[in-house]
Amino acid sequence: MIEVASLSYRAGPVPILHDIRLSLPAGGITALIGPNGAGKSSLLHCIAGLNRPAAGSVRIDGMDPFAVPDRTRARQVAILQQSPALASRLRVRELVAFGRWPHHGGRPGPEDAQATAAALAAFDLDALADRPLDTLSGGQRQRAMVAMAHAQATPWLLLDEPLNALDPRHARDLMARLHALSRPGPGARSVVVVLHDINAAAIWADRVVAMKAGHVIAADSAAKVLRPDLLEQVFDTAFEVVEHAGRRLVMTL
């Protein structure tokens, strides 16, 4: 369970998040939606222990990410960030293997090689495993980064716009993979994901958190948040929500 209590965050002098109170139960997929500049990424970084809040606190399964050693934190929560393209001669396998760093701290063992191989297979990267990163397309690189976060084998997986640059097939595959990962069972992950594709949230998310201008507007089941009136309030544009073949579809008007 993630508990965010009265959290405020500033980037330099600019206030970004205001008095955020949020509680996310373990398991399932939580989608963070909201317009550009709503503070979704900042909130994700605060939860991951990378942005120090100006006030308030974060607890991940009772752990304060700012109080524990960095590697302990990185075994509890993994984050995929929106990073600039990594122009590196690293191979995909080497990148994914970095996900094991918090576990081995520089001396990888056989179980680390296993976890790396499993992550490569899970994200359809076996054919690319020996390609250098600077020869990959944006979407392929993005998948490699997600695989690295997966290899970190943390109970909590935070993803900042993982669908960036993915084609429809790989976007769908990634969301299906996250969905499967977050079902109850041994080794289940709790996934928090920033999405701009509201339909992806409608199809795959168990919970939706809608943010605007540094405030949480709503945090509830997808059915309760993805309503035309609420979406219009969040995004300042009109929406239509239709049911088609048992699915909820969201369209701007």
Binding site: L50, A74, F98
Partner: peptide, 15 residues
């Protein structure tokens, strides 16, 4: 090697 991934990613990995 981890630091070479850049400060944000390295910190995310607990370095």
């Amino acid at each position: 090697d981890v630091a070479g991934l850049g400060r944000p990613m390295a910190r995310g990995l607990g370095l």
